[in-house]
Design a protein around this nucleic acid. Structure first.
Lengths: 221, 221
DNA sequence: TGTACATCAGTGAACGCGCGTTCACTGATGTAC
DNA sequence: TGTACATCAGTGAACGCGCGTTCACTGATGTAC
């Protein structure tokens, strides 16, 4: 066959439709008809819709987590800056999605959906499989932000994650809104630079919260 | 009757379930059985599921937008700081939700869903009805951040919105994660202070992007 | 005061529909003897 | 080389189920005369 296999065509189509509409709103009939395969092929190859969703996540998280660990191995010895650690996620995502910005948007969109739409079953699957590289990334961040308490860091990471997934969720529609009436339309890579600025600023923000200083260090104003 | 009317019971229950699971994943049967009303009552009072969703939004957006405009009227003459403008959203949300932190979380969660799950129909409804106060809020922000280009401001607002809705989406589960093993559990109001720090830091972040400076002003380092 | 009618909130049961899943089946390819 | 069987990707049609919606109906309350 010249075209992709049935399994790949299902995964390619499911990925796009899940990212567009979410899991519950995307029917197997929509996936299979758009992919040009038989309805029963999903259950034949994957067993169930739930397993198809897992397979979609595996296909993009496996290379991503692998590449992330590799990069952290290389950079762990050297000194790391906050910008480079944050940018690493974007760089590795771009790299493992073959430089295709549209696929990167899908990647982050699906990551966001995993948080907001995934039921208990899916959440457990993701945590069991992919926790280690993220934990390691977090410990690197902890080294770079000693002035934050553990809880502050925890929340700021989630705020950053929220800014990222949410913004990239509506990337196309937001790009359209942003560019309407603008002389110089903005590219997706430009947006990711803006995002990096914003997130770095948020992580670095001085804490207004009065609290016992754990390391005897004075809070920066 | 001592208890709330059928319409109110439906709205109260729908609000919670929509916030928990999203619109498509919440069936009318789930809502009506939990609310203790007849299944047909939703279509009797609201006409359709779509109209019920709109009614839920109206009930919390009408007082919110009203109070937001009122506050902006009062503060427009005085000088406003970035923190107070950002905090205004949280304050007004808290105020119009009767000081109930759980309802505030639902408020932001539904706002986030409106962005990520709403179809074209719903999006149009929200924009037509509630655009003015938000536009006015944005112009106040523009006065406070003259160093940002229009596009930078546009994106940073959306990043901030993402951080807010996403973080508050998973508030309960995140609070549980954050507090596990911590001696001093963190309250929801504390989280919103942390969020304010983060967002203000992100909005204020220096732009790394090289560009023509529009007002002849030098970028802060 | 009594009767006839109108209004309206709410109900129980059924409707058609799209969903994920199942199952008997096909047809091509590989393997054993 | 020829035959019998096994394996496997894929198929078409049907399954039961939960969904949003509809409809004829009830029973309480208000109103006109």
């Amino acid at each position: 066959m010249a075209q992709a296999s049935t399994v790949e065509r299902i995964l390619d189509t499911a990925e796009v439709l899940f990212a567009e509409k979410g899991f519950a709103e995307t029917s197997l009939r929509a996936i299979t008809s758009k992919a040009g395969v038989n309805l029963a092929a999903v259950n034949y190859h994957f067993g169930s819709k739930e397993s198809l969703i897992q397979a979609v996540f595996e296909r993009f998280l496996n290379p991503f987590c692998g590449a992330l660990e590799l990069q952290m191995d290389e950079r762990f010895a050297d000194k790391v800056t906050l910008e480079s650690l944050l940018g690493l996620v974007a760089t590795v995502a771009m790299e493992t999605q073959r430089g295709d910005a549209r696929r990167v948007a899908i990647f982050f969109r699906l990551s966001g959906l995993a948080y907001t739409q995934a039921q208990g079953h899916m959440r457990r699957f993701l945590r069991e499989r992919y926790a280690p590289p993220f934990r390691r990334w977090l410990s690197l961040l902890a080294q770079l932000t000693p002035e934050l308490t553990q809880q502050e860091r925890f929340w700021r990471v989630h705020f950053a994650l929220g800014a990222t997934t949410f913004a990239l969720s509506g990337m196309e529609s937001l790009l359209a809104m942003s560019n309407q009436g603008a002389q110089q339309p903005m590219a997706a890579t430009q947006v990711s630079k803006e995002l990096l600025d914003f997130v770095a600023g948020g992580i670095r923000a001085p804490s207004q919260t009065s609290r016992a200083l754990p390391d005897g260090e004075s809070a920066q104003k």
